[in-house]
Amino acid sequence: MNASVNAVKTSNKRTFREWLSSRDGQKVLVISAFLIIPMILLMVFTYIPFAEMVKFSFYNMKYIGARKFVGFKNYAKVFSRSDCFGALKLSLYYMGGSVVQLSLALYLATILSFKVKGGDLFKGFMFFPFLINGIAIGFIFKFFYTRGFVFDTVLQWCGFELNNLPYWLKDRSINNISLVGTSVWRYFGQNMVLFIGAIMSVDSELYEAAMLDGANKFQQFKYIIMPSIKTIFVLNVILSISGSLSAFEPPFVITDGANGTGTYFVVMHEIAHTQQKVGLASAMAVVLLLIIFTVTILQKLFFKYVFKDGTQ
């Protein structure tokens, strides 16, 4: 009996060692060795802080000092305060902006993917804003929109009178549109480059065949280009919609969220850092995450439906 148990033990040990030196074992070993560093980084810098933040959202706390457990009170506040959800309305401006941004990007990408004189130069110029730091863009546009500065001067060359021009950041009916303009200017180049990349992968014989069949450029776009870039298109739409829900840099740098331009993120920043209500701000972050999840799932379903219809 004893002997047999021993035998089993040793054979087990041996098989584990054997398994380790076998092809399967080596595979697992190599995979985990390669994965361990990125996984640790992901855990330490994403998931653990996120779990902490979720924990914070149940406390009434500042960065320093005592914490008090309050359950779902912070969440109730997020929904009852007018400034938290009111700020989400501003996201509609940014969503509107992302529609303009994507159509502009798609239009230019389609034109530039055909043979155009100086095409690469244009691509470079239009992609350039994406390379500038967001804070720097904020400062550029602060001066750009200042009364009588760059934008007003350019418009005056075009024949506008200074007195008829609005105050781009002071006038509440227009200041959010001015801010959205800066983010469109910054990001449409990036979207365009992604679109061009996708369009390039279309087999050029398809165009020739389409031309032989007498299809015009618009028909080529509709039946060849659109279906082949739909993955990238959906990706871009999802990214820009979730981006517009979490818009931060333009209002933060240009107007500091004042004068009715405080987006959800700016309000959250204000609550977390000026008012030091870390719990409430964490709850806001969790709520925003849930909203983004919901919106993304809805979009997925929407596109599934729309593209099924379009391609068949």
Binding site: K142, F143, R147, F149, Y167, L169, K170, N175, T255
Partner: peptide, 8 residues
Amino acid sequence: EDDYTTTD
């Protein structure tokens, strides 16, 4: 000032 939103 005329346009207070763009003060520097």
